[in-house]
């Protein structure tokens, strides 16, 4: 029982770090632009494919491919926001949110049209798991790729927090998220910050998409599959709160894994829905509230 518990906790922690990156992207966009941008799903897919092109076609190592995933998804995020979503923003958050669902379907099918429906894998060796002996006599199983992913996710999050805490641009973003009108009075250009939020948010989504792909395989539905968990993480942590997204990602990641103790694995997906339901009925502002930072 202890062994089961420890292994599931570890699995959940690692799943949580992976989930945290796109969840931060989602919540960062919400913090600045005030609408749930469901196009995060297709941008995660686009990131995964950008990383695939960099890694398999151009032979770049995984860290460089992750950077490519971030940049390409970020640029696509800005462009699609300019062309599609920005014009609809005056019509209200609901309209833009619905448009983002349409956008994600279009982008996903562009990926499908360009790369086909087939599964693709990165050009990386598949390594055996490490088994660590534990005091209670069993072993804990963890994959080298999972650990690398956790480190990469940790670095990306650290970089984002440093950016928001220490750079002028980062502070601008927080200011707009906190109080757009006051930020405007202070002379902060809301359009620039909006583009920046799209770039960083979608870039992180792409980064997260590639992390997921590194551990498994990629196909045009890669991002769509994790969208529910990402959305749940952001809602649980408090929409618009970046530390909240991290906390939420761990809650969802660990919750999904731990649910196996009492539920059939088939019903694991339900954890995300239950989490959203509980948080919205008991604490609608999320665990950490709506403060952006």
């Amino acid at each position: 029982m202890i062994a089961d518990f420890a292994q599931l906790l570890l699995n959940g922690l690692l799943a949580g770090t992976q989930l945290a990156v796109p969840a931060i992207g989602f919540t960062a966009i919400y913090a600045v632009l005030r609408f749930p941008n469901f196009a995060v799903a297709s941008h995660a897919t686009i990131g995964a494919y950008a990383g695939f092109v960099a890694n398999v076609w151009f032979g770049l190592p995984a860290p460089a491919a992750l950077l490519a995933a971030f940049l390409v998804a970020g640029v696509v995020g800005v462009v699609s926001d300019e062309i599609v979503l920005r014009r609809l923003r005056p019509a209200g958050a609901l309209t833009v949110a619905i448009a983002s669902v349409a956008l994600t379907i279009v982008l996903e099918n562009i990926v499908r049209f360009s790369f086909g429906n087939d599964l693709r894998g990165y050009d990386l060796p598949v390594l055996r798991d490490w088994h660590w002996p534990m005091p209670w006599g069993d072993t804990l199983r963890v994959g080298p790729q999972q650990l690398e992913n956790a480190v990469a996710a940790g670095l990306a999050m650290a970089a984002l927090f440093a950016f928001l805490a220490f750079t002028r641009t980062g502070k601008m973003m927080r200011a707009v998220a906190d109080n757009p009108m006051l930020a405007g009075l202070k002379g902060i250009n809301a359009d620039v910050v909006a583009r920046l939020a799209s770039f960083v948010g979608m870039g992180l989504a792409g980064f997260g998409g590639m992390l997921i792909g590194l551990d498994t395989s990629i196909d045009p539905l890669t991002g769509f599959r994790v969208m529910l968990s990402v959305f749940a993480a952001a809602v649980v942590g408090g929409l618009g709160s970046i530390p909240g997204a991290v906390v939420g990602a761990f809650v969802i990641g660990i919750g999904e894994e731990m649910s196996v103790l009492v539920l059939d694995p088939t019903y694991r997906t339900a954890v995300g829905f239950v989490a959203i339901l509980l948080v919205l009925s008991l604490r609608p502002r999320g665990l950490l509230g709506e403060r952006a930072y």
């Binding site: 799943a15 997921i212 551990d215 498994t216 890669t222 599959r225 994790v226 059939d264 694995p265 088939t266 694991r268 997906t269």
Partner: peptide, 9 residues
Amino acid sequence: VIYDQAKTT
């Protein structure tokens, strides 16, 4: 074990 195909892991 019946698994959910939509899961990535």
